[in-house]
């Protein structure tokens, strides 16, 4: 351990603001891109299912129409 106390670790020899700002922004940015990718994945899967159900409904409606005429 390079630092004598936890306070010294946070202070980073006076450069604490810059160091923690950099690390914070970096990991937040990485987290955002990762989470966004996963959310998009779920969204796409849902879209696939919805589209499929819609097609099935259209098919059913057509069949009913044909049967009635």
């Amino acid at each position: 351990m390079q630092f004598e106390s936890f306070a010294a670790f946070i202070n980073m020899g006076g450069y604490g603001f810059y160091v923690w700002l950099s690390f914070g922004v970096t990991f937040v940015a990485m987290g955002i891109i990762a989470i966004q990718s996963f959310i998009k994945h779920r969204h796409l899967l849902k879209q696939v299912v919805v589209e499929q159900e819609r097609k099935a409904r259209i098919k059913k409606a057509r069949k009913q129409q044909q049967a009635s005429t």
């Binding site: 351990m1 390079q2 630092f3 670790f9 980073m12 020899g13 006076g14 450069y15 810059y18 160091v19």
Partner: peptide
């Protein structure tokens, strides 16, 4: 936490 300090730039 563990890497040594740079003698010119300190902890930055």
């Amino acid at each position: 936490a563990f890497a040594p300090q740079d003698y010119q730039q300190g902890d930055s």
